[in-house]
C-alpha cells in the first residue's frame, strides 16, 4: 500500500547526496491571489498527494522541509521563482515535477528542476535581484523617468511608525531590451532578505513622483520574471548557487 511506502521514506536516511530538488515554478492567474504562507501549504499538500517523500523538520512542531527563494506577494504572478524541497530518498527531478504538477491547483507549475545536495547557502540567502514586468496603460515612460531621479522618498510603516525611506538605490536598471509596447516596462530591482523593493511600493512611488493614475497603478499586472544572485550587473544563475 502506498501509505506505508511513503512513511518509510519519510524518515530521513542520512548522508544522501542529491536529495534536494531545486525547482523553478510559475504561478499565474487566480492562484496568484493567495498569500505566501498559503502557497507553501498548497505545495506541501500537492507533494503529499503526489506521495513524494518530503522530509520533515525534527522537534516539537515538525514542518515540511521546503525553502522558497523569496516570498511572493498577494496578486503578483511569477514565471521564475525557486523552491528547494528536501526528500528522504533521491527522486529524479523530472519524475518529481511530473507527479507534483499533476497535483497542483490550476496556475501553479514546477519546471526546470535539478537534483542537488543540501545547499551550503540557503536558497533565501542567495537571492539579490529580481526582474519584474509591469503591465499598465502607458507605464513605460514614467517608470523610466524614475531612473533619472537622485532620490525617491516613500513612506513606509515600520513597527507602527511611519518612516521615510529612499528607494532609489533599490532600483537597479531597466531591461537591456525594453518591450516596444509602451504599456509594458521591465526592470531589475533589489530583492532578497537584505535589500528588497516590493512592486506595490514602486507603483506608489510612480504615482507620487510621476502623477501616474492611482487606479491604473492598482490595476497593474505585475509579473516576477526571474530571480538572480550575485551583484548587479554581474548577476548569477540561482541554479548554480549551491
Amino acid at each position: 500500500m502506498l501509505q506505508n511506502e511513503r512513511s518509510l521514506e519519510m524518515t530521513r536516511q542520512q548522508h544522501q547526496t542529491e536529495y534536494v530538488v531545486r525547482c523553478l515554478f510559475e504561478r499565474v492567474g487566480v492562484a496568484s491571489f493567495v498569500g505566501h504562507l498559503d502557497l507553501m501549504h498548497t505545495f506541501d499538500r500537492a507533494i503529499r498527494r503526489a506521495e513524494m517523500p518530503i522530509l520533515y523538520t525534527q522537534g516539537y512542531n515538525p514542518r515540511p522541509m521546503m525553502v522558497f527563494a523569496l516570498p511572493l506577494g498577494v496578486g503578483i504572478d511569477t514565471l521564475g521563482d525557486y523552491v528547494d524541497i528536501s526528500l528522504s530518498r533521491v527522486v529524479d527531478a523530472e519524475e518529481f515535477m511530473e507527479k507534483v504538477n499533476n497535483n497542483l491547483p490550476r496556475g501553479v507549475k514546477l519546471y526546470g528542476g535539478i537534483n542537488i545536495d543540501e545547499p551550503k547557502n540557503s536558497l533565501m540567502s542567495v537571492v539579490t535581484t529580481a526582474m519584474y514586468r509591469i503591465k499598465a496603460p502607458g507605464v513605460q515612460d514614467p517608470m523610466l523617468r524614475l531612473f533619472e531621479k537622485d532620490e525617491i522618498k516613500v513612506e513606509k510603516k515600520s513597527k507602527g511608525k511611519i518612516v521615510e525611506t529612499d528607494i532609489r538605490p533599490l532600483l537597479l536598471s531597466k531591461a537591456q531590451k525594453m518591450p516596444e509596447d509602451k504599456d509594458i516596462c521591465e526592470l531589475y530591482v533589489c530583492a532578497g532578505s537584505v535589500k528588497n523593493l516590493r512592486p506595490d511600493v514602486l507603483m506608489s512611488a510612480l504615482c507620487k513622483y510621476e502623477g501616474y493614475d492611482e487606479d491604473a497603478a492598482a490595476n497593474a499586472e505585475v509579473t516576477r520574471l526571474s530571480l538572480f544572485g550575485g551583484e548587479y550587473p554581474k548577476l548569477l544563475d540561482i541554479k548554480e548557487l549551491l
Binding site: 492567474g29 487566480v30 491571489f33 493567495v34 498569500g35 498548497t42 497542483l104 491547483p105 490550476r106
Partner: peptide, 8 residues
Amino acid sequence: GRYVGGEF
C-alpha cells in the same frame, strides 16, 4: 483568495 476559485 476567497473570491477567485481555482482550487484543486
